[in-house]
Design a protein around this nucleic acid. Structure first.
Length: 424
DNA sequence: TCTGGGGTCCTAGGACCC
DNA sequence: TCTGGGGTCCTAGGACCC
């Protein structure tokens, strides 16, 4: 029988902030999305004040002030680095690890007895807390979907001490009966409504539905697998190898309203260099670049306006200049004056390994010269920080740049931000 | 005034082929 | 009235995830 453990950092971003600022312990905190737009992480105290996940910051502001909640801009440099450290510690507990997201991973656990599994879970938890400083919860079960359920149960019920084992049949049924259908991995808003309408409210009720029914009502094979997994039949394997991305996007809302073509042009150039950097990191090339820019979709005063264009290069590339030349030429043709722009971005598609690029008649392949130039740029930016080397076309002033007014230090990646210990 | 960013997979339906 | 059968490929859109 397969055994999966799902390990998940509690309120991960909020916990990262606390690791380097202990005065935040027991203080309610929230972390905001890019541009300080929405609340995307909350400490338990903040949750208890009714601050909703994903809610606009400006709507929550009063609640935040009234309850003395500390708010932070998101600090992905810090969270990404803390995540890498956590995953490294976790990988010492099993050779089979799937990093599922910035704060979650699945471990394959074979060959332990049930009793050992629970205490092994406790060991994992304590080690992560000791090495990284992040509290986490662990769900252990014969399928990934059940491991998710178990993890959630552990988080909600302190008596579990953060570890829930969901192998025994009676325990499985007991927990499924106490799990709302919308809390299952794979059930989102649409399916929740559909299920509630049919009076299916708990995970247990869903697990009793016939496979065919799940197939017609919950997105085909996806729904079929979901029901099987709830019943303990493992259908979703551990993915221990990180596949290269098939799409790479770089998009951002502007820090303030933008009306000038020049600002859009700079921002697109900036996003192209970010996106192609990710592309080169995974040693890929892309053939298609899509770019867009649009006004504020939430505006009640102005109509929504959006431009969306795709361009296919003659040969796949990872050279930002090639993408940028194509995009800038097209931008000139489709920019519209008199619109209050809110956001823009680029998406790279038709991504393949850099090794098997087909040359064409006119040989538009990336030259060795441009490749070594870009390799040097990447190296410098990695060593000295993003933006040390950049393209002049992405601008110097960057009045359109995203806001991050409440950001904490880059404690683990910047010497200036290293914590100081006071002695004596 | 102020509402994120980055992904995946699956299906249905149309175009097209023999 | 009644208009084959079987296949592939592509795309748009829907659903989900963190």
């Amino acid at each position: 029988m397969a055994v999966f453990a799902l390990i998940d950092g509690n309120n991960f971003y909020a916990s990262c902030e606390r690791v380097f600022n202990p005065s935040l312990n027991n203080v309610p905190i929230v972390v905001l999305s890019n541009n300080d737009g929405c609340v995307i992480a909350r400490s338990n105290e903040a949750k208890s004040f009714g601050i909703k996940m994903g809610a606009p910051y400006h709507e929550m502001k009063q609640l935040i002030i009234d309850n003395g909640v500390k708010a932070f801009s998101s600090n992905y440099t810090l969270y990404g680095d803390m995540s890498a450290r956590m995953m490294e510690t976790l990988s010492s507990f099993s050779p089979d690890i799937e990093v599922y997201s910035i704060d979650e991973c699945f471990l394959g656990l074979k060959g332990f007895s049930n009793f050992e599994l629970t205490s092994y879970g406790q060991t994992i938890r304590q080690t992560v807390k000791q090495h990284i400083g992040i509290p986490c919860c662990i769900g252990i079960a014969p399928t990934k979907t059940l491991a998710k359920v178990a993890n959630r149960y552990a988080k909600k019920n302190p008596e579990t001490q953060g570890v829930m084992l969901l192998v025994d049949e009676d325990i499985r049924m007991f927990v499924l009966q106490r799990t709302e259908v919308e809390d299952i991995w794979g059930i989102g808003r649409q399916y929740r409504e559909k299920l509630k309408a049919k009076n299916i409210n708990t995970a247990y009720q869903l697990s009793k539905m016939p496979q065919d029914w799940a197939k017609t009502h919950l997105g085909g094979v996806v729904g079929e697998r979901l029901v099987l997994e709830l019943n303990g039949y493992s259908c979703i394997d551990l993915e221990t190898i990180q596949e290269p991305k098939k799409n790479i996007a770089a998009t951002r809302a502007f820090g303030k309203v933008v009306t000038e073509e020049r600002d859009i042009s700079e921002a697109l150039s900036y996003h192209i260099s970010r996106a192609t950097e990710k592309l080169r990191d995974q040693k890929s090339v892309a053939k298609i670049v899509t770019f867009f820019f649009h006004s504020n979709p939430f505006s009640k005063v102005y109509p929504f306006f959006k431009v969306w264009r795709s361009i296919e290069l003659p040969t796949a590339s990872s050279d930002p200049c090639k993408f940028n030349n194509a995009v800038q030429a097209m931008l000139k043709k489709c920019f519209k004056q008199g619109v209050r722009y809110h956001k823009c971005g680029v998406i790279l598609q038709e991504i393949n390994p850099a090794l098997n690029v087909q040359s064409d008649l006119f040989s538009n392949l990336d030259t060795d010269k441009s490749k070594s130039l870009l390799a040097t740029v990447d190296k410098l930016n990695k060593r000295f920080g993003r933006g040390v080397m950049k393209f002049a076309s992405s601008g110097m002033e960057k009045s359109w740049m995203t806001q991050a007014n409440l950001i904490s230090g880059h404690y683990t990646t910047n010497w200036q931000d290293l914590l100081k210990v006071k002695t004596g």
